[in-house]
Design a protein around this nucleic acid. Structure first.
Lengths: 260, 260
DNA sequence: AACAGTGTTTCATAATATAAAACAGTTGCG
DNA sequence: CGCAACTGTTTTATATTATGAAACACTGTT
């Protein structure tokens, strides 16, 4: 989101400040934020004091710098209980986990990124990890490409026009034309596969979940270590289970088979 | 937190509104919130529009009611990467998980509740679940009691004076005197145990993690199904590993053994 | 000691948030 | 159908509140 320039009301300023506390830069001083956002130091100071009093941010007593507060953990419980995708999806994730023994995860688009909203980690010793909240761009990895592939053409075109296809690994797709073809191929076969597009050695399978309107709501995915995704029979087995459970999930959301 | 009465600035009002979207009541209308918080409908309306534009809340197109937005998933990634407890703790959680094969979790106090900030689920078929963000009162369950037991006496007294010890299950401790004795016992033996104090059939073991000041920062815990926690040798084995890893964790935070 | 950084506080002024009321839809009921 | 009682939303004049510049207090460094 991140709105442009000046002329924000105080709530928007508070939100813009909160959004600055990202993984890339987790600790901020007041004058630093002031310069970054073009708010006066007094304003930044006042807003941070308010946010601090609610534990949205905390302050390091030694450096006096601010960082994100623990209150956000609390909203997670609300999300898990409220979000119909995580509530309904629980059974399907469990079923995929039970049958495949791989790390299962459920993803949605949030602010032009794929974000993991639920997961069950593999019981195996060699496993891929995918914590809730994990974010990645929409062009790299099966779960991300799957979400993008089944979005509206307008969304895809807009995304491709704005995004910079950064080379994250040697397998990342960096040419828009190749990505377009890949998306077409995902749509025609009904699922997405990737190997090391974002993280070397990490394979991924993903199938879309649709709602009653036929709109993509999530992608149901497996994160599989390279050695196991290269086993043809295991791969096929996993895809079948994913397709089956994602289909049942879509049905539970009111999607009618053959709706298109 | 939840500040009293009127005379809040607009940012505080926005936060108070956000905090109303809890598990217990996840969907709110404008006049409903207006009545609940004594803000005028126009104010609630304006604030919700701002929050909506940043995806802090969403609006159901059919009912027009508001519910929590997906942006909070995004802050989780920041927390995981920023919070020194989750970053440092990863290794110790892994080690406990590897050795015990039970569900491991890390907890802190947030707003007078125990909240789970990291977890690794058991690879076993019969297992206890403990998702990140899971909240419980400080008087029920080993992880919660452990956090309370090693807090300052002032905090404990204040907590016991304010809290209502609700009977969550038939095993919940509901008498303040019994809870005080239980806390003493936890302090003297160095770990906490519970069985079905919050959820029937769910057992729990927990050991405190201290920082360089000797203050409790977290509790490292196992969630174990009743049938396995009743096995004496398994119980003892689990406690030993927890004590060992929580000790190493404390040391990593600068705690000196025998600091008290 | 002087300097160059912090975070923080003060205060008059200007901008913004506010509540009441009106508006615009929806639902339920006789 | 039509009234009533709900919704969420918009308007507007007024008063509260947020604002930036400057000063302050404190740090560590040169």
């Amino acid at each position: 989101m991140t709105k442009d320039t000046q002329k924000l009301n105080s709530i928007e300023k508070a939100i813009e400040i909160l959004l600055k506390f990202q993984e890339a830069k987790s600790h901020w001083g007041i004058r630093e934020l002031s310069a970054e956002l073009s708010f006066s130091p007094a304003t930044v100071q006042r807003i941070l004091q308010i946010l601090k009093s609610y534990d949205f941010v905390r302050q390091d007593p030694a450096t006096r710098q601010y960082f994100i507060g623990n209150i956000f953990y609390r909203f997670l419980q609300t999300l898990n209980a409220t979000n119909s995708l995580t509530v309904l999806g629980k059974n399907f994730l469990n079923e995929v986990a039970r049958q495949t023994k791989e790390t299962v995860h459920l993803n949605v688009i949030e602010d032009s990124f794929r974000i993991c909203i639920d997961h069950i980690e593999s019981p195996m010793v060699l496993k891929a990890s995918m914590p809730v909240g994990h974010r990645s761009p929409l062009y790299a990895g099966a779960s991300a490409k799957c979400l993008l592939a089944f979005s509206s053409q307008a969304f895809i075109d807009n995304y491709l026009a704005e995004v910079n296809l950064e080379q994250l690994t040697e397998n990342t797709i960096t040419q828009p034309e190749r990505l377009q073809k890949e998306l077409e191929s995902i749509r025609s076969q009904g699922y997405a596969i990737s190997l090391g597009e974002r993280t070397p050695g990490l394979g991924s399978l993903s199938v879309p979940v649709f709602d009653y309107d036929g709109l993509i709501q999530a992608s149901l995915s497996l994160a599989v270590p390279e050695v196991r995704i290269k086993q043809e029979d295991h791969l096929e087995f996993c895809i079948n289970i994913l397709v089956e459970q994602a289909g049942a999930f879509s049905k539970a959301l009111g999607f009618k088979t053959g709706q298109f």
